[in-house]
Design a protein around this nucleic acid. Structure first.
Length: 836
RNA sequence: GCCCGGGUGGCGGAAUGGCAGACGCGAUGGACUCAAAAUCCAUUGUCCGAAAGGGCGUGCGGGUUCGAGUCCCGCCCCGGGCACCA
């Protein structure tokens, strides 16, 4: 489309100037108040896509707006440059991941610059740079020394197609690999973990004070999954030690100790260490079947066959019984895969009457149930999950069939039962979490090496600080062997023990890339430091990040890990001790969909921003993303989207023509006294400032754009008619300032042509409260809630006057037809409602 | 199954319990033009009406209120998250 100004040249010119002049570079001793805004650093996958554009448009708007408000705004950028795609590309093409990654970084950086988003590039961080690796490894060693990093055997996700372990988030909900589509299997490997569970309570409690979307906080709370209950021992029948054999007991965890009188059986997980001791000879075969079936099936298979039918082959009686300490009676012990070894104690007391899963299992195996909570009337006739009779009842009610607990409510009975267990010395109150320790080792090349060596004499030995960073050699072969290429590189592998100097081997695993992203925001505050990861004083100066922006897909993993790291670093003395949370406010923008699916490279439904940079320009594309709807909402990219983007370009043309009139344009502007029309334009100008301020504060950019559009609709005819020169100048300058954070190039160029200086170093406009007040207000007159008349009134009108005016309205008199109003609701100056 | 969001014109979306549909896209008509593009002006929820004007309208059914898109109760549909966590 033909444009009113030279979009491409002007955008290039200003992008160059911001870079050359260092407009958005801030020093750590900047005297202005600090304000840290950060958009999640991206994985460099090539040129920016629309999701990036949307993201960085919001971030850039904040940077420019806050700068105009007089803050020193820290706006850094970096690249989350380690990761599997680069390594897979290396396996495929033989190109070293560094070469591949740095080419992608260059492409992404170029499109970020073309968008006109501004950063202090002096602070750029790339996770694969040796300096970042060095401090990443330094922190790992700190965690290791503090016992927050440890090594243990664990089940991990293994993709046979990719010949590598996968992160949990790379396994799709159906249990397949997101890349190859192969079914992911479990493998037991010795792995490195971070002890995030040590911070479970703090991670949970501190959520309350964060200015984050409730949705994200809820997701984190669920993920941490704190549950309170009791743990207690069930003595195996005949194994109380009286016959000379050592006593044997099964420890179970429950959140419902109050239901103990309803225990009709117990269950152990197939992997439970006591299964062999519990299983009697005649049940060995069926128990072995359950165990092998459980070992061979994926989580998905286990879940898909739940319900009574599926359960039939997924459990078996062990032949043993345990004594319910509450009743003294024995109940049978089953092995079943609906109990997980990884949670609680891997064993449960089963109460079919008050637990749906136990109910299903009991139905399948013909086990009895005893209700210990009185269900509501009619429950056993039609209260079941399928609307049929019975079923587990998990609601509130009075305790029954429970001896001394009878008559109590559930919370009281829980407390009483726990106290009883404690007094008898067979159990205790116990808090459990769903949250597991963070598995950080990866059998990959393109990641940060874990800085330890293994010495036959001294075991795990951290690499001394003066030998950091441990860098991977370049001359490796990229083969899909299921091991990091490092394991086949003897030069890297073989080393000496830092303690004894004897032969030792290096760790060949690398760290999860989420480790890299767990503290990069701290490094940004002091990226030049060569003595430590960052100076705690610099972190104290800038942190916490005032506004963090990113996708909802990071609601749990990255945001939880970064919170954990911030707390751990504070405790380890690396970060400021009082910095417990990294991100003050979080904004999660909506995603862009196309044909109902998320726009992404892997789906091949990307729309490239670069074509828009070369046609309508970055400003129009930015304005579109701000205008299209609430930033938090998802948006659909459709056939009509291009028209809307062009509409944004058209609006910018109108702004341009208003701000920079063509030489041959008719100039009818006048001077002299201000007329009432002039004053009403001034009022509109000052009201616009208030509106935009209000909308910026609540992230309502679509309505602030709408307000600016309305304003041009008013000012344009005024300026073309007999407008007053001063009034037009005030209107246009204000508009340019308000638009500057949204469309930085056009406003900069227009401002320079009008004033000769730089709009982005101007102060944000301030409205005159007297002018911003409305001159007259439309009083809506309703009769019985229906609008019958509108009267222009003074904004300061009182109740009686409003009532008087309303009752005097010809329309009202007609509607009332002589009858006296029964009631008049007067809400000056906006509304009067007359009830006849 | 549980927990969040959300259902408003042809479309994207506005609306501290107080004029529903701001703003934009699209569409229709007009001005300018030899013509087109661009630009500018006007109309644009729906029904009745020549018009003035009036009726109906925010997923469905109830309720609270002088007044409900907005608050409450019960449903339906769409999107997302979690899902053997005892």
């Amino acid at each position: 489309m033909a444009r009113a100004y030279d979009v491409i040249d002007i955008e290039k010119k200003w992008q160059r100037r911001w870079a050359d002049e260092g407009t958005y570079e801030v020093d750590n001793d900047d005297p202005r108040p600090p304000w840290y805004v950060l958009t999640m650093y991206p994985y460099p996958s090539g040129p920016a896509h629309m999701g990036h554009v949307r993201n960085y448009t919001f971030g850039d708007l904040l940077v420019r707006h806050r700068t105009m408000l007089g803050c020193s705004v820290l706006s850094p950028f970096g690249f989350d440059s380690f990761g599997l795609p680069a390594e897979n590309a290396a396996i495929k093409t033989g190109t070293h991941p560094r070469i591949f990654t740095e080419a992608r970084i260059a492409e992404l950086k170029e499109s970020i610059l073309a968008l006109g988003a501004v950063y202090d590039w002096r602070r750029e961080i790339r996770s694969h740079d040796p300096e970042y690796i060095q401090w990443n490894q330094f922190i790992f060693k700190k965690l290791l020394a503090a016992g927050l990093a440890y090594r243990q055997k664990a089940q991990v996700n293994w993709c046979p197609g990719c010949q590598t372990v996968l992160a949990n988030e790379q396994v799709l909900p159906d249990g397949t690999c997101e890349r190859s589509g192969d079914l992911v299997v479990k493998r037991d490997l010795e792995q490195w973990f971070f002890r995030i569970t040590q911070y479970a309570d703090e991670l949970l409690d501190d959520l309350d004070d964060l200015d984050w979307p409730e949705r994200v906080k809820t997701m984190q709370r669920n993920w941490i999954g704190r549950s309170e209950g009791a743990e207690f021992d069930l003595v195996v029948e005949g194994r109380d030690g009286s016959d000379g054999r050592p006593p044997l007991a099964l420890t179970v965890y429950t959140t419902r100790p109050d239901t103990s009188y309803g225990m009709t059986y117990a269950v152990v997980a197939p992997e439970h260490p006591l299964v062999d001791q519990l299983t009697t000879p005649e049940h060995r075969a069926s128990v072995a079947d359950v165990r092998s079936l459980a070992a061979a099936s994926s989580d998905v298979e286990r879940m898909s066959e739940s319900g009574t039918a599926g359960l039939a082959k997924r459990g078996a009686f062990t032949g043993s019984s345990v004594i319910n300490p509450f009743t003294g009676q024995p109940v049978p012990v089953y092995v079943a895969d609906y109990v997980l070894m990884g949670y609680g104690t891997g064993a449960i007391m089963a109460v079919p009457a008050e637990d749906a899963r136990d109910w299903d299992f009991a139905q399948a195996y013909g086990l009895p149930y005893i209700r210990t909570v009185q269900p509501p009337e009619g429950w056993d006739e039609h209260g079941g999950a399928d609307g049929g009779p019975g079923g587990a009842y998990t609601g509130p009610g009075e305790k029954i069939n429970s001896d001394w607990l009878n008559g109590l409510d559930i919370p009281t009975a829980k407390a009483e039962a726990t106290e009883w267990l404690e007094s008898k010395g067979i159990g205790r109150a116990k808090v459990n979490y769903r949250l597991r320790d963070w598995l950080v080792s990866r059998q990959r090349f393109w990641g940060c090496p874990i800085p330890v060596v293994y010495c036959p004499e001294h075991g795990i030995v951290p690499v001394p600080d003066d030998q950091l960073p441990v860098l991977a050699p370049d001359d490796v072969e990229f083969l899909p062997t299921g091991q990091s290429p490092l394991a086949n590189n003897l030069e890297f592998l073989e080393t000496t023990c830092p303690i004894c100097g004897g032969p030792a081997v290096r760790e060949t695993d690398t760290m999860d890339t989420f480790v890299d992203s767990s503290w990069y925001f701290l490094r940004f505050t002091d990226p030049w430091d060569t003595e430590r990861p960052f100076d705690p004083e610099m972190a104290r100066h800038w942190m916490p990040v005032r506004q963090y922006i990113g996708g909802i897909e990071h609601a749990i993993l990255h945001l939880l890990y970064a919170r954990f790291y911030t707390k751990a670093l504070a405790d380890l003395g690396v970060g400021p001790p009082d910095l417990r949370e990294p991100f003050d406010q979080l904004f999660t923008q909506g995603m862009i969909r196309m044909d109902g699916k998320k726009m992404s490279k892997s789906r091949g439904n990307l729309i490239s921003p670069s074509t828009y940079f070369e046609t309508v320009g970055a400003d129009a594309l930015r304005l579109f993303h701000l205008f299209v709807g609430p930033p938090a909402d998802d948006m659909d990219w459709t056939d009509q989207t291009d028209s809307v983007i062009e509409g944004c370009g058209r609006y910018l043309d109108r702004v341009w023509r208003l701000a920079v009139p063509a030489e041959d344009a008719p100039h009818a502007l006048r001077g002299g006294e201000l007329t009432p029309e002039d004053i009403s334009i001034r009022r509109a100008t000052h009201r616009l400032i208030d509106r935009v301020n209000h909308d910026y504060e609540r992230w309502s950019y679509n309505t602030s754009v709408a307000a600016c559009m309305e304003f041009v609709n008013v000012v344009q005819p005024y300026a073309r008619g007999n407008g007053h020169a001063d009034v037009v100048a005030e209107a246009v300058d204000t508009l340019l300032l308000l638009l500057a954070p949204m469309t930085p190039h056009l406003t900069a160029e227009a401002w320079e042509r009008r004033h000769g200086d730089h709009i982005h170093v101007q102060p944000w406009p301030v409205s005159d409260p007297a002018l911003a007040l409305e001159e007259t207000v439309t009083l809506v007159v309703q009769v019985n809630g229906k609008v019958r008349d509108r009267i222009e009134v003074d904004p300061g009108i009182d109740e009686d006057e409003a009532t008087r005016l309303a009752l005097a309205s010809a329309k009202v008199i007609e509607q009332l037809a002589g009858a006296a109003p029964r009631r008049v609701i007067s809400r000056p100056p906006r509304l009067v409602n007359i009830v006849p």
